[in-house]
Write a protein that binds this DNA or RNA. Structure first.
Length: 215
DNA sequence: CACCAGGCAAGTA
DNA sequence: TACTTGCATGGT
């Protein structure tokens, strides 16, 4: 059976990405860098409560004040700056118009996002997949760890090569990529944290995981 | 107490 | 180019 099906049978749909608006999802992508989502929710809640979770609010607020509102995510000084960089990008390149940004071609938008200080490949792809609904596969530390421990990829594999491994072997739309990545994170959280403790991991029986959805 | 979380950029040699 | 380090709160 395929990797995706095994995980879906075990956990069911994960209903990602949390967030009511595209901007909220984009902000969440920055705030969750190397940080648990639990800590992000508090920061999002703070921003929403003060009416700051919109282009205007995040444009106006000084970086130092923004940092105070997002303390719970850790790295708050760094992330306040990164959030401002993201907002400046939307304002300067798309006149602060989210709909205009969302009409951009996928490759062009990815390049633009990657040009922002503080937005790397995982954050850019998370925005593309979950906010912009593009069929882009998101790679994260769990994806690497799971495949590496199953002997499927070398230690030094790059982000882009790991991403190609999935995208070249999947006939996928954004919906599949969405659920696939969410299920990988869920599986990693439950069974691949710290030292390997496989237990009842749905992928345990696989020496080589079959990535393909259909065969 | 130690360890790590849905990374990234900057510094070092 | 190839490692290493700083960022920092909060849960297990």
């Amino acid at each position: 059976m395929e990797m995706f099906t095994l995980m879906l049978n075990q956990f069911g749909p994960q209903h990602w990405w949390p967030g009511e608006t595209e901007l909220e999802m984009m902000a969440g992508a920055v705030l969750t860098q190397n940080t648990s989502w639990n800590n992000v929710e508090k920061a999002i809640s703070n921003l929403k409560g003060k009416g700051l979770l919109n282009i205007e609010g995040l444009s106006r607020i000084p970086s130092e004040s923004l940092a105070e509102e997002i303390k719970s995510v850790g790295y708050f000084n760094i992330k306040a700056g990164r959030l401002k960089n993201l907002i400046n990008f939307i304002v300067e390149k798309y006149s602060g118009d989210m709909d205009q940004l969302l009409m951009e071609k996928t490759e062009t938008l990815r390049e633009g996002l990657l040009s922002i200080k503080g937005v790397g490949p995982e954050t850019a792809d998370s925005i593309l997949l979950y906010a912009a609904k593009r069929p882009v596969f998101v790679i994260d530390a769990y994806t690497y760890r799971i495949l590496n421990r199953h002997g499927m990829v070398e230690d030094q594999i790059t982000y882009d090569n790991l991403q190609s491994l999935f995208m070249d072997n999947l006939t996928g739309d954004a919906g599949l990529f969405n659920e696939f990545h969410a299920l990988i994170v869920r599986t990693g959280k439950d069974f691949c944290r710290g030292k390997p403790l496989c237990g009842s991991c749905p992928l345990k029986e696989w020496e080589k995981i079959n990535i393909q959805k259909s065969n």
